[in-house]
Write a protein that binds this DNA or RNA. Structure first.
Lengths: 191, 191
DNA sequence: CGAGTCGTTGAACGGAATCAATCGTCGTGG
DNA sequence: CCACGACGATTGATTCCGTTCAACGACTCG
């Protein structure tokens, strides 16, 4: 786990934030890299002239802003979604430690390859035109068998690039067709 | 440049492939990581039951399959698009060298952060519904001022998730509206 | 010279966005 | 503690725009 390696190497320092507070905002100079210890953080980005879009939702154990390690400024904002405890690591210190701790660096590198793969998967999904196929592909990729939804339906809709209305309708259709089972926050893919 | 660091650390070994040949294919076990020295390579992925989609087009200087460094199998295929010379680095050796060469690892890490940022940008673009706005946003992100197109229009269309017809029509509209200038393979954004 | 592909345009259809309204739930403050 | 506001989930109706199918010229490559 990356956070453990970070902790071992850099020591701990953490902050507590309430829902609605920002860990950092788009355009701020990058001073720190963070890890979510508890709670949930939403990475959002303000588009040129449109609604803000959610880039990622980070849960406990995930690091955020690792992709900004070599950047001057954060390219998105981190909004606390559920009151969170967040570990803070100085970017400068981290960069220094990376020079001498291959283990830490590899850990980080591995984390990044996972991000890349996830993002490519999303891109792939978003290039599917049919809402039904898109949702099915997403579910197949996301859930191995069955799973509790950790995101709101609305968030998932946004993530896969559908209006939430279209998404609601699609899962309803899929359910009546018997291709998925659903009860509240529980989803199951029927093969 | 990553390829220089790789070269310095691992020494050189390269292969030449002609258009239509595969560097590796989806599902193969990951033995090597590659860098394009000359030519062009297209990373494609076979979707569950659909047309293959282009994940990335790699030009001279770019590394490919870095994201597979910790994977067992390639998750896409690499098809040579324009006769290419390609540097080959053993994954095993590379992983070993990463343990002892922070400079190389940092270089790779930096490369990955760039990939992540690019992919996020694409995702952001693909969540814009209007074709016109999507194309404009893409152009603003991709071209600082003006630029020769290094991809075919068709490829760009696929990249931003539009049918090529829709893309042709959109840039035509944008041109008649005077928002872009175009002559052959040259594009310019009018502010 | 033919096969294949890109670029381009036309026509028609369909499906997803959009607008709108309702209900339930959760958190918050008076 | 309850009223209120905010937001998620849901459904209906309508519109529109991007996909799809189709056809053609131009170009390149073998």
């Amino acid at each position: 786990m990356l956070i453990d390696d970070l902790h071992d190497t850099l020591g701990s320092k953490s902050i507590r934030l309430k829902k609605g507070e920002y860990v950092f905002t788009q355009g701020q100079s990058v001073e720190n890299i963070f890890c979510v210890i508890q709670g949930r953080v939403r990475l959002m980005r303000q588009t040129i002239e449109g609604a803000p879009i959610v880039i990622h939702v980070a849960f406990a154990g995930e690091s955020i802003a690792e992709a900004s390690l070599f950047s001057e400024k954060y390219h998105c904002s981190a909004l606390v979604d559920i009151g969170a405890e967040i570990a803070v690591f100085s970017k400068k210190t981290l960069l220094n430690r990376l020079q001498t701790s291959p283990k830490l660096t590899l850990s980080l590198l591995q984390q990044m390859t996972i991000s890349v793969r996830d993002l490519r998967m999303l891109n792939e999904i978003k290039s599917i035109y049919s809402a039904q196929e898109r949702v099915l592909t997403f579910l197949r990729a996301e859930f191995k068998q069955e799973q509790e939804l950790d995101l709101s339906l609305k968030d998932i809709a946004q993530k896969i690039g559908l209006s939430h209305e279209a998404f609601y309708r699609t899962i309803k259709t899929l359910e009546t067709e018997g291709r998925i089972c659903r009860s509240g926050r529980h989803l199951e893919l029927v093969d």
